[in-house]
């Protein structure tokens, strides 16, 4: 048996390298690494405001990350989180004026469901293209990201533009479909509950349903499907629907909880980070919220570095990249140590 001490040593080594590599760049920028890490960790984890912002960013990251995890479990690489988030948000904003007249929790619920449906429709389209024509979902989702971005640019200057027709943004959604603030004096909204519920639902789906089982079978070995009589095409479409739907839900949550209207840069580029979130969680839904918090630290920490330590914020992307690499290295080393015969 490999010693636990060896594993521990390896863990410490990796943590040290995570700290050391970005330190070189911080030194090169003429700043003190200690001050930088102090600012980064001090603000994000030790202040109320900082941590609240981390949670705010972790909400969409969790939802999209769960979507990525669903797809990856089935061996489908959904890189389209950003596009699905945008389309989900557009769909729910488009119907928001009608939902506003509904009783309070019902309108909000419908708002979220429409967001899920919007992202899900875009995802299902990708799944169908793949199942029907064998289209590569990576390429299709990346391309659709640009289509969705252009769609957003158009709708906020066209059909969904605010009534004054001055600013490139949509009308504000009715207050009745907004997600209420959950923690006073912060932006933490009830989307947190949505993210937690989605996490639990997905855990149950993976563990206890026939659909979750089929998904893991085709993810493990696609060629088994015809032998076992599993309809892998249908499973692919279903999976992309759920995966895109979760990203779309994230879009609706961002609108209902934070922005209350569509604007050019509301999407925040969470899609790519969500892939790292899902992979670092090893596609385990219960771990996704925690890795999402980690990436929330990077998002919020970037601002803190610039503000408090006067360090150019791209340093935080170097830290983020180092963490991902270190995780991969750790994973590879652990895998090698326990490689099957």
């Amino acid at each position: 048996m490999k010693s636990v001490r060896g594993d521990l040593m390896l863990g410490v080594l990796i943590l040290l390298s995570v700290a050391a590599v970005p330190a070189l760049f911080i030194l090169a920028a003429g700043k003190s690494p200690v001050a930088a890490y102090g600012a980064l960790i001090g603000y994000t984890l030790a202040t109320f405001n900082g941590f609240a912002e981390v949670v705010v960013h972790a909400i969409p990251l969790t939802l999209i990350g769960l979507g990525v995890a669903v797809a990856f479990r089935g061996g489908i690489f959904n890189i389209g989180g950003d596009g699905q988030l945008i389309v989900g948000a557009i769909a729910s904003v488009a119907v928001a004026p009608w939902l506003g007249r509904m009783p309070v929790p019902l309108g909000l619920l419908c708002f979220l469901v429409v967001g899920f449906a919007g992202g899900g429709a875009l995802g299902a389209l990708v799944g169908w293209l793949r199942a029907r024509f064998g289209a590569n979902e990576i390429i299709v989702t990346i391309m659709l990201n640009y289509v969705a971005l252009q769609l957003l640019t158009w709708v906020i200057r066209g059909p969904l533009q605010e009534p004054m027709r001055i600013f490139p943004q949509s009308f504000a959604i009715p207050a009745t479909v907004e997600l209420p603030v959950l923690v006073a004096n912060s932006r933490i909204h009830a989307g947190l509950i949505v993210a937690v519920v989605a996490t639990l639902v997905l855990f149950v789906v993976f563990r206890h349903t026939a659909y979750g089982f089929r998904l893991s079978v085709i993810g493990e070995n696609r060629s088994v499907a015809p032998f076992a009589g599993i309809n892998d095409r249908r499973t692919i479409v279903q999976t992309m629907l759920i995966s895109g739907g979760l990203a779309g839900l994230a879009g609706a949550v961002e609108i209902a909880g934070i922005h209350h209207k569509l604007q050019d840069d509301f999407a925040g580029g969470y899609g790519l980070a969500a892939i790292a979130v899902a992979l670092m969680a090893r596609l385990n839904p219960l771990a996704v919220p925690f890795t999402a918090l980690l990436f929330g630290v990077f998002y919020v920490g970037a601002g803190a570095l610039q503000r408090d330590a006067g360090i150019p914020f791209p340093i935080v992307w170097i830290i983020e990249g180092t963490v991902i690499f270190a995780f991969l290295a750790y994973d590879a080393l652990m895998h090698r140590a326990t490689a099957p015969r």
């Binding site: 079978v217 493990e220 060629s223 076992a228 009589g229």
Partner: peptide, 25 residues
Amino acid sequence: PEDRHRHAILADLPLTANYLMTHLG
């Protein structure tokens, strides 16, 4: 089937999953 590894088993999954695979109905 003739090609066990390709069609009949999921090498990295437990026996329970390998059993359930063809009895899911």
